[in-house]
């Protein structure tokens, strides 16, 4: 253990005064050009710039992706979470602001972008989003005003994956693990182990 950590003593006295939680931002990542942005998680940040920075660090480096969007949690509105697929109602109209629409295929799954609609308010955007994108395959529609959604720029993209980062992935170890195990176990035994590994761990 480092000396600094060894010498750590519990600060005495009262805890510092409580601080309010920072804003929550929801983050979606895009695996390849043209693909939907899928829910990745959240970050806590005081402003857009910091939220995007944290999102890039946290989710952009976790797995290969080519784009990332975020919005403040309170800016999104969720429609009903239905038990089965949503039944789209007729909802025409193109008036109002632009809203980004997300669909959720199943409860416990991840929302992903489906497209945009124009609407004067969130409730109408959900109705129009359901009509346009639910398609019998979504149990929830989420909408966010397009102007509240923030996206990484092309300039920021180059920070990702500029070197081999397979050390951050299980598959980055597959070859050497196999090679080391097969010095100890024969191939069929290793294959069986690997099969169980996938069932149990992946």
């Amino acid at each position: 253990m480092s000396k600094v950590r060894e010498r750590t003593r519990s600060p005495e006295g009262d805890l510092p005064a409580p601080t309010p939680d920072a804003k929550q931002w929801v983050v979606y990542t895009q695996k390849r050009e043209g693909a939907p942005f899928k829910w990745a998680g959240t970050v806590e940040a005081v402003d857009t710039e910091l939220a995007l920075q944290y999102a890039r660090e946290h989710y952009g480096l976790d797995e290969a992706c080519v784009g990332l969007i975020t919005y403040e949690h309170g800016d999104s509105v969720d429609g009903e979470y239905s038990i089965g697929p949503l039944v789209p109602q007729k909802a025409d109209g193109t008036d109002g602001d632009e809203w980004l629409v997300f669909t959720l295929a199943k409860r416990g799954g991840n929302h992903q972008t489906a497209g945009t609609v124009n609407a004067p308010d969130a409730a109408t955007a959900i109705n129009r989003g359901t009509a346009a994108f639910a398609d019998g395959k979504a149990c929830n529609i989420r909408v966010v005003l397009a102007s509240d959604v923030h996206e990484t720029t092309d300039e920021e993209m180059v920070i990702w994956r500029t070197h081999d980062m397979t050390y951050k992935l299980a598959k980055g170890y597959s070859k050497q693990v196999r090679s080391k195990w097969t010095r100890i176990r024969d191939n069929p035994a290793y294959e069986q182990y690997q099969k169980e590994d996938i069932e149990t761990h992946f």
């Binding site: 050390y167 951050k168 992935l169 299980a170 980055g172 170890y173 597959s174 050497q176 693990v177 080391k180 761990h201």
Partner: peptide, 8 residues
């Protein structure tokens, strides 16, 4: 990843 890295 953590598990596989540990196994290695």
């Amino acid at each position: 990843f953590h598990f596989k890295s540990g196994e290695d």
